[in-house]
Computed example of a mutant assay.
Amino acid sequence: MILADKIIKLRKQFAWSQEELADKMGVSRQSVSKWESTNSIPDLNKIIKLAEIFGVTTDYLLKDNIETIESINGEVEPTINSISLNQANRYVDMKNTMSFIIVKGVLLCLFSVVPLFYLLSLVQTQQMDIDSNTATVSGIIIMLVMVTFGVSFFVRTGQFSNELASIEEDEFELEYGVKSIFKEKLEMITSSYHQKLSIGIALFILSVVPFLYVAITNGSTEKILTMLCVLFFMIGAGLYIIIPASAQYNAYSLLIKEGDYHPREKDKNKNIEALAAFYWPLLVAIYLGWSFWTMQWGVTWIVFPVGAVLFAALVGLMGLISKTKS
């Protein structure tokens, strides 16, 4: 293996772009490009610096017959995973399957409050011979059953974790020609993805319109409860459109390491995931605690839209802090 190939291999192993390696070397990106394309050879000082940056011996860089990566301390560096076309396609298929499982769980949890609103609306219209306490208790029981089934779908996604880890958690590189295939696939679905994203966001925004209209026009309690059900169904429709589309788009982006999955974005994404893992369970706990304490389920749902806006603000603040530090 010649020097140019070794520089490419090591750079990819560290998930660096040519620009990032150039910054570390104190040279231009064009210089790195020429080294990798064999149009020029770095001088001895640059080779010594390359060895220091990559943590390998100069012998490994200079001797073509040495192909096993040797670190400065004599240890052999682990090679990164090489992902074939079949493995990449299987990864995308698993992400698509997971997305539909997650959608089912999300919709069950989201719609779990609908039976409660429906029963309370029946009490208001006196279409059923039950009092409000019985309707509330029955609605809460149905809600808990639906949430239980919803959580079971989330648990089922764990069956994919081991196979996904080799791509999502470990360093990898795509075999020759695979990246261009998925880059083309990403370009093909980009327009459809943004269209679906727009429709989903529009449904989220418009979902509150029927409820606000009834509330402003002093509609009956029955109508208000009905419009709350409509609100949740519109939100559910938006999620049903967005989640699978985003899963496929993100899977392609991760494979070719573009967008949010570019090496420069890794640390930011890890921080966002850590925040989400703490934030959303806390928000659900606040919602359930407030709801059971006040029994005003028609009011406490406001926690989620407010919480979503706050989460977006926190993510934006994290990005601003990250840019300031850099």
Rank of each mutant, 00 (worst) to 15 (best):
G74V: 07
S28P: 03
F232D: 01
Q248N: 13
K95Y: 05
N133E: 12
G319K: 15
S17R: 07
R264V: 07
V106Y: 10
E163Q: 11
P305K: 06
I48V: 03
I235N: 01
L203K: 01
S99H: 06
A135H: 02
S166F: 09
R11I: 06
Q195V: 15
S33D: 06
L119H: 01
K12G: 10
I216E: 14
V309S: 07
I83W: 05
S121P: 00
H194Y: 15
N218V: 06
A237F: 07
E173R: 13
G55M: 09
K6Q: 04
V155N: 07
G319M: 11
L108C: 11
G289F: 11
V113G: 00
V103E: 12
M295L: 14
I48C: 00
E75A: 13
V151A: 15
L144I: 13
K196M: 15
I199F: 15
S198T: 15
G316K: 08
I242W: 03
I83G: 04
L144W: 08
K270V: 11
Y249F: 14
G150W: 14
P78C: 03
I102Y: 09
A276C: 07
L44K: 08
V27T: 09
L144D: 08
M25Q: 04
D59P: 03
I2R: 08
L310C: 10
S84Q: 08
K46E: 00
A247E: 06
E163V: 02
G177K: 09
M146W: 05
A135T: 02
F160L: 12
M1Y: 02
L206M: 12
V56H: 03
D23Y: 08
Q159Y: 14
M188S: 14
